[in-house]
Design a protein around this nucleic acid. Structure first.
Length: 428
RNA sequence: GCUCGAGUGGUGUAGCCUGGCCUAUCAUGAAGCCCUGUCGAGGCUUCGACCCGGGUUCAAAUCCCGGCUCGGGCGCCA
């Protein structure tokens, strides 16, 4: 390492010792005979104090003329001083310009003027230098880490499934075609079918955190065309049990985020308490809450979920959806064939995901496919594992990006994705 | 796919409805100078912009048409 201390770690205990620091030159305040430079790295800020008499005229001039956001390293004596921010500063013997920043900057890191998100995403490398921006990714990493930990604790096996798939006959629309040598292939929308095949393979409890692609031309603060999906599938299980997994995963994520007080402070957002069990309302109850905005049998519009969220604060499940609204692989409810064992997981008005117990009887699957005007023969790769001993199973998929958005208090999912892919953006 | 809105220096904006005093506002920034305790440092000087193309008009940042780019709402989202 080229440094002996991180900027945020410099402490009065280091008084009189020689230390070196590396980072970005955030600011220069030149008062004539004395100058104060602010050095920043991921851990925080440190003040470099230059005395003209001590460093000499030439060094003083050179070092105070380095452009903001250049990368520098300094070595010098640490001094406790109550007038310095944080009570310590470093008086350098040497200062090395490692990489000079061009001027003007594409956006200001510490300026009082906030840039628009478009400008910021175009210069994300600069945007990320602001602690209140990088905090989103610390929160996201805390969530991701907690999810891995919780699922492993519960005995889930991490898997990776293909992202290039051969056919668009899985039932969904909006797939991105890709050229696969001399054939047309697609980017996957979801690991759904592969998770189920893993159940056929006897892996029993699996999870994957990976990319998914949707070729939908939506333009909202919640949608991206490439997103990260947290998916689980569990054998010998039902919709209720996997809802239990979901709430424990979300609670673990909430706890991990709450522990990162520094990031929450940077984001100026409060921690979200998740108290288990999370409320569960049925689709019928949801329709009642929607104040006539939806008819029974219709999907819940944004308008409807907004009305529902007036009564349902925070996270909750909507269960017992009409079978007609759920895909062919979701199981029918035992007590009433009108309903399904599918559920949605919500945060206020935002749909986080859907999940449910799956059909494991191949005859029913074939019938359901035909009912939806799909040809079972086109699904043979998918159906085949169901003919040789498929356990009952249930699962869900949850958008990591949306979860990060909620926990970091962001109003736009793009804030929580380093280099988002939306309808118009493919670069950087 | 439907619909609404927006494009002004490096960044963020004012001005547009009600065309002319716009040689375009303010802030931030950049360049330079002064200053030994700054921490949003301060002071002085300077620099830099009306998305593109048509049209209306004596006159267009401003009104009209087209294009491009972007954003929002809805739809869609196994």
């Amino acid at each position: 390492m080229q440094y002996t201390r991180k900027c945020g770690e410099l402490a009065s205990e280091d008084n009189d010792s020689t230390q070196s620091l590396c980072g970005w030159l955030q600011d220069v305040r030149n008062l004539g005979g004395i100058a104060f430079l602010t050095l920043r790295d991921r851990t925080g800020l440190a003040q470099i104090t230059l005395l003209k008499k001590k460093v000499g005229e030439d060094n003083f001039k050179d070092w105070t003329n380095i452009s903001r956001e250049s990368v520098i390293c300094v070595e010098g004596t640490v001094k406790s001083n109550k007038e310095a921010p944080g009570g310590v500063e470093i008086l350098p013997d040497s200062l090395t310009l490692i990489n000079e920043a061009k001027t003007p900057l594409p956006l200001g890191v510490i300026d009082k003027i906030d840039s628009e998100i478009e400008t910021r995403l175009n210069a994300r490398y600069m945007d990320l230098r602001k602690p209140e921006i990088s905090a989103h990714f610390k929160v996201r990493a805390a969530i991701s880490g907690a999810v891995h930990k919780q699922l492993r604790l519960e005995g889930f096996l991490e898997i990776q499934t293909p992202k290039i798939i051969a056919s668009a006959t899985e039932g969904g629309t909006g797939l991105f075609p890709v050229q696969y040598f001399d054939k047309e292939a697609y980017l996957t929308q979801s690991p759904q079918l592969y998770k189920q095949m893993a159940m056929g393979g006897g892996l029993e409890k699996v999870y994957e955190i990976g990319p998914a692609f949707r070729a939908e031309e939506h333009n909202t603060p919640r949608h991206l065309n490439e997103f990260t999906s947290i998916d689980i599938e569990q054998s010998f299980s039902d919709d209720n049990e996997v809802m239990g997994v979901m709430e424990r995963v979300v609670a673990a994520a909430a706890e991990a985020v709450s522990a990162d007080i520094e990031s929450l402070n940077d984001l100026q957002t409060p921690p979200i308490d998740v108290e288990l069990p999370l409320p569960r309302i049925t689709y019928d109850e949801a329709v009642d809450m929607a104040k006539g905005l939806v008819e029974w049998g219709e999907d819940l519009s944004m308008e409807a979920t907004r009305a529902i969220s007036e009564k349902m604060d925070g996270f909750y499940f909507i269960t017992k959806w009409p079978l007609q609204l759920k895909p062919f692989y979701i199981q029918q409810d035992d007590s009433d064939p009108k309903y399904s064992k599918g559920f949605d997981f919500m945060y206020k008005e935002v749909e986080m995901t859907s999940g449910g117990q799956r059909v494991h009887d191949v005859a029913i699957l074939e019938e359901r496919l035909r009912n939806q005007d799909l040809n079972p023969e086109d699904f043979e790769h998918y159906l085949s594992p169901f003919r040789y001993g498929m356990p009952p199973h249930a699962g869900w998929g949850l958008g990591l990006d949306r979860l990060a958005m909620i926990f970091s208090g962001a109003s736009n999912v793009r804030e929580c994705v380093l280099w988002p892919r939306d309808r118009t953006r493919m670069t950087p």
